[in-house]
């Protein structure tokens, strides 16, 4: 939110366990359109390759988040 308010595009990663929470906080902070990219929970202590797979699976969403102007 800090960067987006300064015009710097961001993509915020959350795992699905934190999806509702992240969107709720964005709403409370008046930034409902903040791009959030959701990956499957959990991620802590995952082998690096498994984590990469989770991120690769959302690469299209990530690209959109960083390049599309919010509605």
């Amino acid at each position: 939110m800090f960067f987006e308010r300064r015009g710097i595009p961001t993509a915020t990663f959350v795992t699905h366990a934190f999806d509702k929470y992240a969107r709720g906080l964005c709403r409370m902070q008046g930034m409902e359109a903040l791009p959030i990219v959701v990956i499957p929970h959990p991620i802590a202590a995952l082998p690096r390759e498994n984590l990469r797979q989770k991120v690769r699976a959302v690469s299209a969403e990530l690209r959109t988040a960083l390049t599309r102007r919010p509605d």
Partner: peptide
């Protein structure tokens, strides 16, 4: 402040 366990307070 909107504190709610599992919703805003994780």
């Amino acid at each position: 402040a909107g504190n709610k366990p599992g919703v805003t307070d994780m």
